[in-house]
Nucleic acid binder design. Structure first.
Length: 374
DNA sequence: CATACGTGGGC
DNA sequence: TGCCCAAGTAT
């Protein structure tokens, strides 16, 4: 902490704020969530932007605000429709937490997004970053909003060699932001830091020659900007083998299942599937048995119509895709449904099952003898 | 504190 | 092809 304080003292904070904010006001991108400061829209955008690129978020944000323009609209919406609005964005608990928090705001806070760190931080899905972002952007409150961009930018500006992958590092950067933040325009200051990280002070090969705060940058002065930030991390993924089946009944309707309300892809829809513990056990009979034991459905498997791999951040799914006929009644419970090809588009499926459905459609339209191989 | 939690894009 | 992400949070 002493080192950072020392480097902060090397910077003329007023000049830094001015150079940063002037650049932001001139160069900021025209983004849909920057049209106004409606705390709800700021909130939605910040949740969507977690671990997600701006270009990906834009169309989702526009549709989401179109479907749920206000806190009331989101609070009153069916969760299935909310998940449909999020379909394909990933990290689906974000939107379930968002709806839960919005309902709490409606009920406990008279529909007003809280404007203090203490209260807003109690809302589901609102962590230290999001709290600071909403407070500063929507309410002009000088709170730090430390995300990956801010840690990268400040690592370089202040020549900080703290490992930004460590959770404990965030407080170092929060401290630095508290020392540096503009109290005149905290919103522009925080957004400028993130915008700079996105456009100029990028992870690899930062564009220092275009940087509005280059003259304040300790790492640039030392010529070490390319070495920073320090970020350790090794993601090891686990492999999971699945057999999934597209089952139709005698009327051609398709059997779908709603996933459990916690864990991976919670509350999204899927096609019936089982995990294959031993990769070689893909005999028809064994697969059928597993479906009966684990899902209580009788079926006639036809053939493997395809195969796909889907990579998550922490695991890899290898899915063998079968088609087949449902030979028992649809299981009891609202988590099973038989739907037509037209109805299926109202249900939210995670990407691996969208891929699976696409493979099925291609298979049905034009049977391909080679598809049976795999 | 480490791990679970998605996805599509860049090199 | 494979690895690293990108405006994090919950547990």
């Amino acid at each position: 902490m002493m080192i950072e304080l020392k480097n902060i003292e090397k910077i003329n904070i007023n000049d830094f704020q001015h150079d940063l904010i002037s650049w932001f006001k001139a160069e900021q991108r025209d983004l849909p969530w920057r049209k106004d400061r409606d705390p709800y829209k700021v909130w939605v955008s910040e949740i969507m932007l977690q671990q997600t690129r701006v270009d990906t978020v834009i169309p989702y944000f526009n549709r989401f605000i179109d479907w749920f323009p206000t806190i009331d609209d989101l609070a009153e919406a069916e969760e299935d429709k909310v998940l449909k609005a999020w379909e394909g964005l990933g990290y689906y608990s974000r939107v379930r937490n968002l709806q839960s928090a919005v309902r709490e705001v409606k009920e406990k806070y008279n529909g007003e997004v809280p404007n203090t760190p203490e209260v807003i931080s109690t809302l589901k899905g609102v962590g230290p970053y999001t709290a600071g972002a909403i407070l500063s952007i929507a309410y002009g409150i000088p709170e730090p909003a430390v995300d990956g961009n801010v840690m990268r930018v400040f690592s370089r500006i202040l020549n900080i060699w703290e490992d930004i992958a460590k959770p404990s590092s965030r407080k170092v950067f929060e401290h630095a932001v508290r020392e540096m933040i503009s109290h005149e325009d905290p919103s522009a200051f925080n957004q400028a830091l993130m915008e700079l990280g996105a456009l100029v002070c990028t992870p690899t090969s930062p564009s220092c020659l275009l940087c509005p705060v280059r003259e304040h940058c300790q790492a640039f002065e030392e010529g070490v900007q390319a070495e920073l930030p320090i970020k350790t991390k090794k993601n090891k993924t686990r492999d999971v083998q699945l057999a999934a089946v597209l089952l139709t009944d005698e009327e051609g309707r398709i059997l779908i299942h709603k996933r459990p309300s916690d864990g991976l892809l919670a509350n999204l829809w899927e096609f019936p599937n089982v995990e294959i513990q031993h990769p070689l056990h893909h005999e028809r009979e064994k697969i059928s048995e597993l479906f009966e034991q684990e899902l209580q459905i009788h079926l006639k498997l036809e053939k493997i119509i395809g195969q796909l791999e889907h990579v998550f951040s922490h695991l890899v799914w290898n899915i063998k895709i079968y088609n087949g006929e449902l030979q028992s009644n649809i299981p009891e419970g609202s988590d099973w449904k038989l739907v037509t090809l037209d109805e299926i588009k109202d249900y939210a499926f995670p990407v691996p099952y969208q891929k699976m459905f696409k493979i099925y459609l291609e298979y049905s339209n034009r049977p391909d003898p080679n598809a049976a191989k795999a």
